[in-house]
Design a protein around this nucleic acid. Sequence first.
DNA 1: ATTGGCAGTCTGATCGAGCGAGTGCCAGCA
DNA 2: TGCTGGCACTCGCTCGATCAGACTGCCAAT
Lengths: 339, 339
Amino acid sequence: MVSERALHVLRAIVHDYVASREPVGSKAIVDRHQFGVSAATIRNDMALLEEEELITAPHTSSGRVPTDKGYRVFVDQFADLRPLSGAQRQAISSFLDQSVDLDDVFARTVRLLSHLTNQVALVQYPALGNARVRHIELVPMSATRLMTVFITDGGRVDQRIIELPLEADEAFVGELRAKLNAALAGQVLSDVPPVAASLAERFAPDRREAVGVVAEALIGHVDAHRTDRLVMAGAANLVRTEGDFVGSVYPVLEALEEQVTLLKLFSEMQVDETGVTARIGRENDEALKETAVVTSAYRVGTDSSAKLGVLGPTRMDYSNNMAAVRAVARYVSRLLGEE
Amino acid sequence: MVSERALHVLRAIVHDYVASREPVGSKAIVDRHQFGVSAATIRNDMALLEEEELITAPHTSSGRVPTDKGYRVFVDQFADLRPLSGAQRQAISSFLDQSVDLDDVFARTVRLLSHLTNQVALVQYPALGNARVRHIELVPMSATRLMTVFITDGGRVDQRIIELPLEADEAFVGELRAKLNAALAGQVLSDVPPVAASLAERFAPDRREAVGVVAEALIGHVDAHRTDRLVMAGAANLVRTEGDFVGSVYPVLEALEEQVTLLKLFSEMQVDETGVTARIGRENDEALKETAVVTSAYRVGTDSSAKLGVLGPTRMDYSNNMAAVRAVARYVSRLLGEE
DNA sequence: ATTGGCAGTCTGATCGAGCGAGTGCCAGCA
DNA sequence: TGCTGGCACTCGCTCGATCAGACTGCCAAT
């Protein structure tokens, strides 16, 4: 095991390396931190840390750089997570309180996080699988085209345009709307498909085909609610920190455009009791092996939740970013959970 | 004036430079193109082209590179715009035909363009300022919270959650919904604000305040329709072509995240009779001075239109990109104009 | 366990030489 | 008048050598 002091040396190395992007040597540590021992002693500790693979030397005779494992230990040991400054908290609330609807909350949140951390920010849309249907609206667009609008009590709205196999008059649309809402309003989303499938029976035979098309659209709406989505902002920040990547940032950006990768990542992240987690370097997929992802969860309503977080080079300011992610997640939870 | 042959030399230089990213010399031109004259003659032409500032030499003794002006002349003179291959046309139609709604059309279009051109793709949402109100739906979320859903015949749907100053019972919401639709359905968007403002009079005095809140929300909806938005895809492509930028791509990416810049750009671009335009290098704003933007317009319905296009380094394959942008714009016009 | 000292190693910057690509110019030719 | 081959010249780039500086690892002493 490494000594107490060695861990503090690790902390100093992470701290200085994050600040300067230069490998840090024993001399620099005794200069900038009060260890009360000589450089030679620090060197011994560094040899231990290297033994444990917490730090590594880029070349035989240069300073040391934290490894992924080193960052991991740093985060686990020293995540103090001091609360944000008053001004920052103020910025969060005043910015998010202006949101006009659910989409707007997410759009604002992601921009906010990106600005607070100077990293790429990610916000996952909540999977409203157990939300309930609030209302279904049918809007005729032309004689045979109908728009279905599907509203859930989570506040989410989907629309879809369908082509009917017959000309739908006002009366039919009215009947359909009334029966749809009677059958489905208040239902949990997962109950929608069976109910929708059985709807056709309640109509005259010559209308059943048209009702079937509408039922299909409703199932599509449910799928759309189940399908996860996420929004992203601040991709430019990755390019700014390009120097931190030994390869190119190109594969990272490609992975970011591929939502699947990110959704998988989010689904794998377990948020622990402190409310915020980090995945560092090779703990991630191949494409993200030089990045770290800091994540927290937020609640929507009473029983639904999703994640948000930031992504950046492993050489990032974990303390600040973890504090920001946690604070924003908490604020969003309060905003969306209050109803 | 420059001779006919000199223009063809320019074309050869642009062609080779775009392909190789290396300054092209007189020798390389006579080798790779059939000019039937010697390198010395080409050199004379190149001197002329340099005189006209169509090409420039990075160093005293190296090959030549096209200037912004050179690309401009190239595009104006040699934009042959041959139609896309059958396979490409096939890809466009099969991919876009799967769209389920308006948002989906734009999301697919932007991804498609980005893949066809390997550049950053941009699609502007149409400003539906002269669309008409199709339907207004009110959905109670809780005793004092109401969601307003605003649907236009362009197929666009906005929602917004408002806080009422009183508890709204079913009857009031029903009355409000009926009167709103009676007064506003079928109206042009620009007529909504005055009508909405005068709505309160038709209600009992103790309800007027609540109606005012709803009217305000409606005005917000109209604004949201007027406000331009755009979607983007393929930002990673910019990073891939980073070598084409003398500075960093960072300011370019920043400008891309700032929608205002792009909307201004789109609004300034005039699409000529060929249906597709390019803005090259310094013709753009400072931040985009090393990029070129290829744009075309598409129609939505009968009297509304918006733009789409791609953005990349000035050293791009103009012929291919202009052809792709034009083809996609035409397809989207057909898709959205048919109704 | 800690320390000062010392030898050894590696990087990064700087410099100069040589190479090669490419130009500009000129005199001669159709 | 326009085209061509030839030639001197200019640069940028690469390679190798050199040098200063920064750190380490080890060792003997405390």
